[in-house]
Computed example of a mutant assay.
Amino acid sequence: MATLIPATILTGFLGSGKTTLLKRVLHEAHGSKIAVIENEFGEENIDSDILVQEAGEQIVQMSNGCICCTIRDDLRATLADLAAKRRKGELVFDRVIIETTGVADPGPVAQTFFMDDEVASQYMLDAILTLVDAKHANQQLDTRQEARRQVGFADQIFISKADLVSADELAALQHRLAHMNPRAKQSVVHFGEVPLSQVLDLKGFNLNAKLDIDPDFLKADDHDHDHDHDHDHDHDHDHDHDHDHHDHAHGEHCNHPHHHHHDDDVKSFVYRADQPFDPAKLEDFLGAIVQVYGPRMLRYKGVLNMQGIDRKVVFQGVHQLMGSDLAAPWGPQEQRQSKMVFIGIDLPRDILEQGLKQCLVA
């Protein structure tokens, strides 16, 4: 079977530095030929200094051997067209990077790789990268759901323009982002200077890749609670079941830098269980949940301890699309614990937790 072409989705709000990062990757990826797909309403096209433009051509060759094209029809058609040209030897490239517009929701872009058989048979979605502009992030996250969704979908978050804010403001932003998405690794970047190892081959969508949850997020109550005891900002993941029921206005007028409590609609929570799951019950429950809440479920992933199965079961999903796979056997000394993270828009945590609990073997 032919090797699948890895694809990366690059997203982030206007002015966050996507094009700067992309240019750097294109200049640095020596030995790797990259096809870049741009949504044509990008804030600027990849600069003409690295493009060899052919009049009227949708696909242009770059001076460094990479290629670039804009989406004229839809993404599916563009991907199919690129793959067909590659098969015929008309184009040479090893991987694809899709740069979305600043206001795009990465969800439908990610779903294209799973829902369309032709695309799925030729491409493998590697990761969603989100750029966040430290200077304007809070305002964008407060006012634009697309910005919050971009954070919720990310496998890797790059924070740009951190030199324009204080250390306290940066820490508060990182804290906020971790609450929205504890799966995504965060890196502060300057002028798009990012090691390629943080951009390519991250395997964020690989079911067998380890369950990445920021370890500080899981033990956050050990070191952060002293900032503002009285603001109930959902650190204590096993006990505070009321954090989803805030009045949405009440974080808005508090603006001192240590106040981490933005009541974002994109939130995450982690569920853990020591008893094994009943496989049939869990499958039924998760199937029902994605039917009802799928549009609001951005990313979810877990390593599960299933009754009667000696190996870990890894599952993950995007919106209504969910997959699972057998992973490594449980080690003889290893604690068999299920661990799941859900990232979504106003997800009913209490319903999810109660339902999951009912799927455990008594």
Rank of each mutant, 00 (worst) to 15 (best):
V199R: 00
Q122M: 02
S32G: 04
P279V: 04
E40K: 12
A273T: 09
V270D: 04
I9C: 06
I157C: 09
D221C: 08
D47C: 08
D126R: 03
E28D: 14
G102K: 07
F191N: 08
D228F: 14
L79I: 09
V36T: 07
P295T: 09
D73A: 13
G89H: 04
K357W: 08
G192F: 05
M297T: 03
Q186Y: 12
H261G: 05
K135E: 15
L352A: 03
A167M: 05
H27C: 02
V313F: 03
D230G: 08
G308K: 14
L164F: 09
A84T: 07
V103Y: 10
E57S: 14
F113V: 07
D284V: 08
Q186P: 04
C359V: 04
F269H: 01
E44F: 08
H248M: 05
F269L: 00
L347S: 03
D224I: 11
A162R: 03
D212W: 05
V60Y: 02
G294E: 08
M322G: 11
C254H: 15
G89V: 03
A55I: 09
H256F: 14
G287S: 15
A77E: 07
G308N: 12
G302F: 01
A147Q: 05
D236L: 10
V341Y: 06
A104F: 04
G15D: 06
F41N: 08
A328F: 14
